[in-house]
Design a protein around this nucleic acid. Structure first.
Length: 371
DNA sequence: AATTCGGGGAA
DNA sequence: TTCCCAGAATT
């Protein structure tokens, strides 16, 4: 290639880039549709909830997947569906059984809202899953993302499903520096995608965007642009902005809390509390605990124990548990009692601990010591 | 608009 | 450690 040809090629490329740069936003988004669908239908992962995407299954999976990784959901999904195979069984499930099915998955209000919504579906929709975005949006636990996901994936309706993956992918494709944590940014994206998405292939379009975000256009470090079907139309890639986009406001610091946890034992029985029905870990069971780090001498009074009933009081070491916004620094004691668990606690058999009572993982360091 | 809700895997 | 995940409800 001589100098002249090279220059001509370069000039043509510049022109085409300039045209591309000035592509209308909606035109750029529309340009994604073809490559995205083709890529998804080739590369979609095989996942349990994709096997038979009917309304109830898609709903349950989408709730479980809120702020929760695919790998964490897998073992819960099939077990949950086997125990509660339809809306009717979910609407009438016992609370403790429901929480036991959700134990360890976190964000326990999701499970409570699931049951509430099932009640509404029984009452208002004759037990049949609603298809429309606006109807789904009214159900407890369903926001704009989940309403879009269920309506499009299970029923094929052309509504967007904008989650964290989609926010990242679209921000990069359009080189948007809007803060993706702002509600207005998500709203903006939903409005545009609703216009530009392929109306007859909403399910694969939405899942394709999510899949790109999860597998290719990843956060934390370099995205895998070489494998991306959107590489040629992505403005972040063109300007090498993958490290700067998406823009996210930094989170604030966690609050620290000191706690003292007691394993109250008497023979085969262990003392439990039921937590308050609102706030952190609402209505789950827990090992008895108090604020602050207590000395052995402070234990009997703090936990309402008769000193004469205490056979053994053994420190069992510290533990830390990190939530999103709180951090527990725990110290623990194992207390063996002579004549039984005090009435102020729930006396649970050690086997029931595994089968009946839902305990959050925050106490795992201590519950593992009960055998 | 900002906080509160869990838990874990990966960088 | 920090980040962030197929977000939603409440304040």
């Amino acid at each position: 290639m001589d100098m002249y040809d090279a220059k001509q090629l370069y000039d043509r490329l510049k022109v085409s880039e300039r045209e591309d740069e000035t592509l209308d936003l909606d035109a750029r988004l529309r340009a994604m549709n073809g490559p995205l669908l083709a890529w998804y239908e080739e590369h979609a992962r095989i996942l349990p909830w994709r096997e038979n995407p009917e309304g109830y299954r898609v709903w349950i999976s989408e709730i479980m997947l809120q702020q929760t990784r695919v790998e964490a959901v897998k073992p819960y999904f099939e077990r949950f569906l086997e125990a509660l195979p339809d809306v009717a069984s979910l609407a009438s499930v016992e609370d403790d059984r429901l929480m036991k099915l959700w134990e360890g998955l976190g964000y326990y209000n999701r499970a409570r809202n699931l049951k509430k919504a099932a009640g509404v579906i029984m009452e208002e929709y004759g037990g049949k899953m609603p298809e429309q975005y606006e109807d789904l949006l009214k159900l407890p636990g369903i926001g704009s993302y989940t309403a879009g996901a269920v309506s499009s994936i299970a029923f094929g309706h052309p509504v967007p499903a904008v989650d964290g993956n989609v926010l990242r992918v679209i921000s990069r494709v359009t080189a948007s520096r809007e803060d993706i944590l702002k509600a207005s940014t998500k709203k903006w994206m939903e409005t545009h995608l609703r216009e530009t998405m392929p109306r007859d292939r909403a399910s694969h379009f939405n899942q394709g965007l999510i899949e790109i975000g999860a597998i290719v256009c990843v956060p934390n470090g370099q995205p895998h642009c070489a494998e991306c079907p959107l590489e040629s139309i992505c403005l972040a890639k063109r300007h090498n902005l993958m490290g700067e986009i998406p823009v996210k406001t930094p989170p604030k610091k966690r609050r620290l809390e000191d706690k003292t946890v007691c394993i109250l034992e008497c023979g085969d029985q262990v003392g439990l509390n039921k937590r308050d029905d609102s706030g952190l870990l609402a209505s789950l069971y827990e090992l008895p605990n108090r604020e602050g780090h207590l000395t052995p001498e402070e234990i009997p009074e703090a936990f309402g124990l008769d000193p004469g009933e205490i056979v053994e009081l053994e420190p069992v070491g510290p533990a830390k548990h990190i939530f999103s916004h709180v951090e527990w620094h725990m110290t623990g004691y194992r207390v063996r009692l002579k004549h039984g668990i005090p009435k102020s606690y729930i006396a649970a058999g050690k086997e029931e601990l595994k089968t009946t009572y839902a305990l959050p993982n925050a106490f795992g360091r201590y519950t593992k010591m009960i055998e």
